[in-house]
Design a binder for these strands. Structure first.
Lengths: 336, 336
DNA sequence: CAATCTCGCTTCATCGATTGAGCATGGACG
DNA sequence: CGTCCATGCTCAATCGATGAAGCGAGATTG
């Protein structure tokens, strides 16, 4: 990368401005950070400093400023991916809500890589973040452990931990409701009452376990047993999901519970690239605007990112005792 | 927000570590930032310091470190939204490529708001970013002007400016090819050779103008004129696009050029919520994995984010003279 | 045996902004 | 006329990490 020095223009500092205006650096500082009334600087000087600062294109050096201040007002977030609407909405909402509260948001995308997650958490600590939101982290407690010695609180979003407060969707309830809806539609449209397929996610992962539990509960309510090979969990990858489906024996008139829109990509690719397009129905735990128009889709369980983030910021502002877990209801969005 | 002071544990500094180890802060610093060999610190001391640092959960204070160093290695990006695959891929790719090069990426999402764009640029300057990538900025030259006095170079991505290097898609070529494909398909499937509709984007925006030019060129190649009311540009909003379509008189067997996946959301909502679902075909400038399976879709012109980012980092590492504009070819992805 | 070199550190100024303490000026008051 | 206070600033220490310069001890050289 080219050096800054390539450009003769050095960033102006409060010392430069003080020289130009003919005052002291501390007066300039007070004017520019808004404490000038408290520090009894005259409006006349304040105005002059402000004008010169503007003329010179002054921008405060946050490194210097944050070093001196006792609070950074920085709030960090780590997030696995930006490739679906759920995490996209979380990232956008987080930034907007942080700024509303006068905080500086910093987001890092960790590609579902546990090592990158820890590295990113350390980076946030080094930035003197006051608080870290760990979104969909593979091991939230590990991150809490990394942050603890620095006194950085963490809050888990999407995937819960045991060491720090967590905000998650009501995965069990959402999955049970979605499963019911799919079962109903398969019965209504195909006249078949049979156990569904569960596709996507990781068996070890908390959300997948909870959704599976809801899936099972809905079946049990109807007196249906689910053979274990009906549950295919090959992680969060469209390609692996597609390959797994090609190997499964999925009959005509089946119903599928799709766990995440990423898995849905694999499912839909399998459906459309299948030699004979089978008549089936699916529902998806997670929302995508275009998936709504796929004819086999019966509806999506949309996670309420707004409510989740509101609760996260509630925890940020009012640290709860212990490590409570809040579950947010999902919103069912029927397909066309 | 709760104070850090709530937690008795203060972040350990190199002074704390020096005290524990029984050495000087500068030795600790040298060990921890990897310059210890050059500074002739013994391996024995280095090892002791490293161990204690780990035990104490030490994390360098980047504010202090960056204040002292002459280079920050921070590279900023502003991006309009995270709600589609194009910007999501750019954000993910940018972070990964920056880290590969030993740079610290910082991304801020500006919601297509010109004021927020400028504010975010100022924030990046304050973080001592060495370089700023302005992605899809409404006024790239304005941002270049804000950065200039601080000696921060900017590079425009997606939307070009005149003051700084720009990397954009070949909007003209991509749009011309996509238009041809749609015209061909409408003729082949419906036996109709008629001008298409152009939906989405802003008439003032460079990309939309270029795509419109390609759209027109493809029509001209076939000797087709396009009535001006065939081009509906109501910005980047699905809802406005949907409303505009409801007002237009779009006949059976029409073809539509959809400018962006956001506009496509509006188009598809209009198609499916329409009382009589008209037989039509569309193509989209931009890619979405689920849109591929919509039966009216003939294909998508996918922007090559990998190639664009590679060129951006090329400009970062080898600043070109002047303000060149690089155009990257798009990749046509046929629908099912 | 003095001069020189190497090793393994330590000392201290520095980056730019912040902030408590203090200082000079002028007016009010007793 | 001395005291007190308000006003409008300036001074200097400080945040934590960095790195140039320097220092003392031991080894090597002439």
């Amino acid at each position: 990368m080219a050096e800054i020095g390539d450009n003769p223009a050095r960033r102006p500092t409060i010392y430069d401005l003080a020289q130009i205006v003919g005052t002291s650096p501390s007066a300039v500082s007070a004017v520019l950070n808004g404490t000038w009334k408290k520090r009894r600087i005259s409006a006349r000087l304040a105005e002059r400093v402000t004008r010169i600062a503007e003329e010179q294109g002054y921008a405060v050096n946050l490194q210097a400023s944050l070093l001196r201040r006792e609070r950074s007002r920085i709030i960090g977030m780590i997030i696995p991916k930006y490739d679906n609407r759920y995490f996209g909405a979380i990232a956008e909402g987080f930034e907007a809500m942080a700024r509303e509260r006068g905080l500086f948001p910093i987001i890092t995308c960790t590609q579902r890589d546990p090592a990158l997650e820890v590295e990113a958490a350390r980076e946030m600590i080094s930035y003197q973040a006051e608080c870290l939101i760990a979104t969909g982290a593979t091991d939230p407690d590990r991150i809490a452990g990394v942050c603890a010695p620095s006194g950085v609180r963490t809050i888990n979003l999407d995937l819960p931990g045991t060491a720090m407060p967590s905000v998650v969707s009501d995965n069990f309830g959402g999955a049970r409701d979605l499963t019911r809806q799919i079962l109903d539609r398969v019965r209504d449209e195909f006249g078949v009452l049979a156990p569904l397929w569960f596709i996507g996610g990781r068996a070890q992962d908390h959300n997948t376990r909870e959704r599976l539990r809801g899936f099972m509960a809905a079946h049990a309510d109807l007196g249906l047993g689910v053979p274990p090979d009906r549950c295919i969990m090959r992680g969060y990858s469209a390609t692996k999901t597609e390959a797994a489906l090609a190997g499964a024996q999925i009959a005509e008139h089946s119903g599928i519970f799709v766990n995440s829109t990423i898995a849905l990509e694999g499912v839909v690719r399998w459906i459309y690239d299948h030699p004979r397009l089978p008549a089936l129905r699916f529902g998806c735990f997670d929302w995508d605007p275009f998936a709504r128009f796929l004819p086999q889709n019966i509806g999506m369980m949309r996670q309420d990112t707004g409510a989740m983030l509101a609760k996260v910021f509630d925890f940020v502002e009012h640290p709860p005792p212990g490590a409570p877990r809040v579950e947010t209801p999902c919103i069912f969005e029927p397909a066309n």
